[in-house]
Design a protein around this nucleic acid. Structure first.
Lengths: 161, 161
DNA sequence: CCAAGACTGAGCAATCTGTACAGTGACATC
DNA sequence: GATGTCACTGTACAGATTGCTCAGTCTTGG
């Protein structure tokens, strides 16, 4: 749907200080409250803002180890594997991908030792042929969206390259 | 820091309906407002809740293509590469990992064709020896945290296995 | 010149927030 | 058994915010 410069600033502001309300945001942005309210409604209605879910740190609730597992799936078992992985709490996200491997999933565990348990739970299922796991050591760039929003806001109005 | 059953229910509730306030949450959970307020303060203070940043959908702002790139780094260039990747808006997150490859990053692009531009920008840097990219086709399990929270809340009080 | 759409500034009722305080029950300590 | 700590409840109050509406102004495009 595209966002303009004001949308961009609004999203940045919300990302920086999520607790501020519409009124405070309007003050910071130098626009009327109604404008902020309208923009927010539009952004949410258009699916740009999916929600304001609490950003929970797995490490803080006892799962400090993160890993990515590439899975190779037996032909035709994709649906079953997806359903299986969806039931494992330690699977935080799952993608089907091109290239080497068929799926990529993000896992968390209580410890490196516990990771073995999680992997066993993940791959201990008909249809998963092979899994290769990479443990995350550092996370130099945590999941972020602001730079992209800025970029998108800058490109506003320009022809789709 | 660990969370108990009430914390778990609170987090679930917030994940399901982020816009509700403390008062409404206390009604839903059947506890006093002060209790919810205290729990929230504790969860935020303890780092369990990092924030309530808007959950922006990259696809909705013109970046419908997601990919994961595994990078191989030349010895000793890690720091420079991290700094370089941090400046690329299309790099949504970056991890250093064990195993095949040294870093894993999540990319988005405006199209499959545009992905080439992004990859060139990412790997066009001294210190990156090789990159292998996997394009995301489907996302059967979007990034989630509720099941893990439930698990963590269930384990509350039990000895660390 | 006119219509449509976006923004402003203002107002109002209802609600929520931040904060404080006293009372209660559970639990561990001495 | 007495005591102190801690978390939760229920209540209260002032101040701030929200949702909504309305009329007027600006800008853009036909």
């Amino acid at each position: 749907m595209g966002i303009d410069e004001l949308d961009g600033r609004l999203l940045e502001l919300l990302a920086a200080e999520p607790r501020i309300g519409v009124l405070e945001a309007s003050r910071r942005l130098g626009v009327a409250r109604g404008t902020v309210q309208a923009r927010l409604d539009r952004l949410q209605g258009g699916g740009v803002i999916r929600g304001f879910g609490p950003d929970v740190d797995p490490a803080a609730i006892g799962y400090p180890v993160t890993a990515f597992a590439t899975l190779e799936i037996r032909q035709g078992q994709g649906r079953d594997v997806r359903a299986h992985l969806a039931t494992v709490p330690e699977v935080l996200e799952l993608h089907t991908i091109t290239g080497r491997g068929d799926m990529l999933c993000r896992l968390v565990a209580r410890s490196n030792a516990d990771l073995q348990r999680v992997i066993d739970k993940v791959v201990g299922f008909e249809g998963i042929v092979r899994a290769s796991t990479a443990i995350v050591m550092e996370n130099p760039v945590p999941l972020r969206i602001v730079p992209l929003v800025r970029q998108a806001a800058r490109d506003a109005g320009r022809p789709v390259s």
